[in-house]
Amino acid sequence: MPRIATPLDYWTNALQLGFVLAEAQSVIAMRMMGAAGVWSVPKTENKRMLNEKIFAFVKGTTDASRAAIAGQSPDAVTALAIKPIRQATRANHKRLKKRGLKRG
């Protein structure tokens, strides 16, 4: 029998989605500045961007589907769908932020 979700469980998922949105916006901005030659990004950034999106969405969908089939609560299923996307946005934000503006 699945555990009963509390309002805090749903709030946690909403908070994680908020982090995804904020980090994704800053990553998009840094990548766009990189394309404009202002931000220091590696030449492989475009390829990396596509590969990581596919992986994150497939992993999230697979994990969430398995959890739903196993009868887990809706908040647990949602958390599993969000987790790989959140990990990707967090890692990208940290990585690109360290690179900084192009110098000279």
Rank of each mutant, 00 (worst) to 15 (best):
A88D: 05
D75H: 09
Q25A: 14
K43A: 14
V58K: 12
D9Y: 07
S73T: 08
E23L: 14
A22D: 02
T62F: 13
V77N: 03
A76W: 02
A68Y: 01
K43E: 13
L15W: 15
V20D: 00
A88F: 03
P7C: 10
A68L: 03
A67H: 08
K98I: 08
I54D: 10
K94H: 05
S40K: 14
A68K: 09
M49F: 15
Q72R: 09
A35K: 04
A35R: 05
V58E: 11
L15D: 11
F57A: 04
K97H: 04
A79W: 02
A81R: 01
W39Y: 09
Q72P: 00
T44V: 12
E45N: 10
A29E: 01
A35Y: 04
L96A: 01
Q25E: 04
F57L: 13
I85K: 01
A22R: 09
V41K: 02
S26D: 07
M33G: 03
A29D: 01
Q25G: 14
A24G: 13
K94S: 06
L8N: 06
T6F: 05
F19S: 07
V38F: 12
I28C: 00
S65Q: 10
T89Q: 11
I28G: 02
K98W: 04
A88H: 06
H93L: 07
K53V: 09
T61S: 14
F55G: 00
T62R: 13
A88L: 06
G60S: 08
I85W: 00
A88T: 12
I82F: 01
T12D: 13
Q72A: 06
L15I: 14
R86L: 15
M33C: 03
W11H: 11
A91R: 11
M32R: 04
T61K: 11
S26A: 07
I69C: 02
V77F: 05
K47S: 15
E45A: 12
S65Y: 11
N92W: 03
K59Q: 10
N46K: 14
V77R: 01
K53H: 14
T62W: 14
F57V: 08
N92Q: 09
A70Y: 03
I69K: 11
Q87G: 07
V27P: 00
A24L: 11
P42E: 13
R95L: 08
L80P: 01
E45L: 10
G37L: 06
E23H: 10
A35G: 08
R66D: 10
R90I: 13
R31E: 04
K47P: 01
L15S: 15
K94R: 05
P7Q: 11
F55A: 13
T6M: 10
E23V: 02
T6H: 03
G18I: 03
L21A: 13
E45Y: 06
V77H: 05
N51V: 12
V58N: 09
T89A: 11
Q87R: 09
G18S: 06
S26P: 00
I54H: 12
A79N: 09
E45D: 12
A67V: 10
M49D: 10
M30T: 00
